[in-house]
Design a protein around this nucleic acid. Structure first.
Lengths: 204, 204
DNA sequence: CCCAAAATCATCCTTTTGGGTGAAGGAACT
DNA sequence: AGTTCCTTCACCCAAAAGGATGATTTTGGG
């Protein structure tokens, strides 16, 4: 299983400890434990987990669901919910984040292990949902996109700001702006939104 | 939940009964119960279940995994495993069938319900492409979009600027901005691009 | 080695967006 | 008649994005 790095987001230290121990027993590495939303965001930003185990209820709010949305928007990492909630209304909010698993407390080590294994496998299989395909797009354009321009296109597709893109790729905002200018030229558009509209036009 | 028709494949009658009762409690319809591989194949052929709950171990073999492969090849229906097996070797065989869930016995009604809900949602998301539909979006939002807000969403989807939107609808840019603010609030986003990313997340 | 393309970054400036607040008119419902 | 929601619009400010130009460095061929 190639030493999977797991981030645990769980506000109850005892349960977090349990999860930690379970994961260690089956050869996963626990990268970090976040006890609240802020810590989770920081860990996501600074560490690079391979997957996240998310408690929905963090200190009384449904912060876990918000974190899940953020993961989808910004990191596209697999995560599974691990929670004591099971009411339909919460489940409905949770499912739209498309978790790869949903484990209810109390749970066993085996519950956790099998859910993670299934989740990781499904994720790896579904790992090419980069609906965006450089070759496909370039076929249609007079002047082909470079790698960085395509990267920029993917990032605006994800809804990132220039600053976020810059941080993600360890370059300055100026560089991103240059790539975007070139991208806009090649797509004959003048803004992010136009670019996305054009993208739909070209690929569908 | 639109009366989902479930096929149960489980060789132990007592457990099958349990599942049956659980499902009825939460308004699913049990189409049929298959007690072995042959019955399962027949049921798949003749009935049209919306999803299948699969025991891996049927009368001593791993027939459940074979059935899963068949479902993928022939029917492309969502299924979840419900089993007492959890050894890695079996899990490895099971995961390659890409189940939408993997529940270990013993399980509770809530375990079953939440797994099915997640499974069906994830499956529905991968099935049909999307069209911009107000009702569909509102189902997912805490606070529903008004007509104008939805209109604004459609316009940014088309790549229009605020000015273009204002001209199109014969109002001032200020009005458009107000609608956009409200839209962003309801979608929990902070920009057009994020709104579109969220839109994909919610609908596609 | 040289060239061209690509990637990096800067500076300056303009336009567009986003965010907050407030307010007026109308429709709908009680 | 009162209340709530939606729509309309204004003003202000801050942040982000867009546009133009030029420069340096890296990279990959020929």
């Amino acid at each position: 299983m190639a030493n999977i790095q797991v981030l645990i987001v769980e506000d109850e230290p005892l349960i977090a400890e349990d999860i930690c121990e379970y994961l260690s027993n089956v050869d996963y590495t626990v990268l970090d434990i976040a006890y609240n939303k802020a810590q989770a965001l920081k860990a996501l930003e600074q560490q690079s987990p391979d997957m996240i185990i998310l408690d929905i209820n963090l200190g009384g709010n449904l912060d876990g669901i918000e974190i899940a949305h953020l993961i989808n928007q910004k990191y596209q990492l697999p995560f599974i919910f691990l929670t004591s909630y099971s009411h339909k209304s919460i489940l409905d909010q949770a499912k739209v984040t498309r978790p790869l698993g949903y484990i209810l407390k109390p749970f066993t080590e085996k519950d956790l292990f099998s859910s993670i294994e299934i989740a990781l496998y499904n994720f790896s299989q579904h790992a090419q949902p980069h609906n965006l395909n450089l070759e496909r797009i370039n076929q249609v354009l007079l002047s082909p996109l470079t790698e960085k321009e395509f990267q920029a296109l993917q990032d605006i597709y994800l809804g990132l700001t220039n600053k976020q893109m810059a941080e993600k790729h360890f370059v300055t905002v100026n560089t991103i702006k240059t790539h975007l200018q070139n991208l806009y030229d090649k797509l004959s558009v003048g803004s992010r939104s136009e670019a996305m509209a054009k993208l739909r036009e070209l690929t569908n």
